[in-house]
Nucleic acid binder design. Structure first.
Lengths: 218, 218
DNA sequence: GTCCTATTTAATAAGTCTATTATAACTATT
DNA sequence: AATAGTTATAATAGACTTATTAAATAGGAC
């Protein structure tokens, strides 16, 4: 939103750099690699972005923002908690499916260079909390009604994000290890999506809950 | 088991290298760094291991083996499925707690250098399948008895590993982002352990299952 | 066409990294 | 104590890296 218009070359560099950073990470990508990918002189990278790190920061900030984006989609007014959670988790899953290397890039970079965590915190500060609070209200209500076992939003989100992210972190490794075809792999991903929602929703049920009918509590 | 006895210096290099590789990954660790850490000449690294990559391979193989180790602990003869699964998941969790940087190292390395996947496959080939098959038999029996919803072992293991691994991949980032003290962080990890087991076990329950009593099916 | 500015390139400085080589310092054996 | 073998170091080659600089090229205004 705050982006200034960019020249074609600047765009080309950003795109190529993004591709390479996502594929191999910051450390294993040289400005020479990027220039080769773009088909331009290596000095041009520095002409537009001064340093490799500034270039990375630009890309990283945008991508990380995407990863922690609000995901407000779910929850048309009267929707049930289950529907809202389902749509939230599925939206998150789809976000990752569209950007499968993002978790790798972010984790890799935040682990090897923790100082970037702070700058991210500043940038994303309140963003996450919105979804968090919306979910918290809804979850507390469900628990009070006995439709969900007592648990924290923190754990619920941790569970959901863990399950979703792991698909795209481990997926490529599993694909290679099991010699899956691209088709088979995509089927696996799709199957995981269903299983994750299933596991999460069942995992929320209180003791002795019925599957779909009216609540037995109270 | 096949290890030859090692000199003190060789051991010292292995330990220092392991520490650094776990902390920053292969790419960001130089042989000079390792030598500095050990307090020896840089050439000595090469004297013992010829190349940086061979040194890494040695460490990586050992550590990855650990990560995929059998985890046979669980399941004393007559134990219930629930008890067996619980002890399996907890053992896996404890393995990770004792080696918290391992998932980062392995994922980082397998993603940036997929050719290592093949060599791992050879090395670990049958290892995993043992636990897998034991679990498969037990799970199928449970499903047949109606005590567990229909699902694959693959998904069950994927769920469990996802939840466990994510704690140690995301934990350090969360710790920094939320400014947690070491104590608070350890409490968070412990809480996650309980929640993960809870979520998994509830997630397995078939529709309309009762919490602990005798099964209502059939 | 000429001038001015923005873009692009070639050349290269300065540094790091891996790996090798030749030499020195130990250790043990006789 | 002399010798042989092992372990350690200093020095350095050679390949990369990032970043800068100065020169070349392109495009628009006049």
């Amino acid at each position: 939103m705050v982006d200034t218009p960019q020249s074609g070359m600047e765009q080309a560099i950003l795109l190529a750099a993004e591709r390479l950073f996502l594929e191999r990470g910051l450390a294993l990508t040289s400005t020479t690699d990027i220039a080769k990918e773009v088909g331009c002189n290596q000095a041009l990278i520095h002409y537009y972005f001064r340093t490799k790190d500034k270039l990375f920061e630009t890309i990283f900030a945008r991508k990380a923002e995407l990863l922690f984006s609000d995901l407000d989609s779910g929850g048309a007014a009267g929707a049930s908690f289950e529907a809202m959670l389902r749509s939230l988790v599925e939206a998150h899953f789809e976000l990752l499916r569209a950007n499968p290397r993002l978790p790798f890039l972010v984790i890799n970079e935040l682990v090897t260079n923790p100082s970037r965590i702070d700058s991210l915190k500043l940038r994303l500060g309140g963003r996450v909390s919105k979804t968090y609070e919306r979910l918290e209200t809804a979850l507390k209500a469900e628990i009070a009604e006995g439709r969900v076992r007592p648990m924290s939003v923190f754990d619920l989100l941790f569970d959901a994000v863990s399950l979703n992210v792991a698909v795209f972190l481990g997926g490529p490794i599993l694909k290679a290890a099991l010699d899956l075809s691209q088709d088979d792999y995509e089927r696996l991903v799709e199957a995981r999506k269903r299983e994750i929602v299933e596991m999460l929703l069942r995992g929320l049920r209180p003791d002795g809950a019925r599957p779909e009918g009216e609540d037995g509590s109270r």
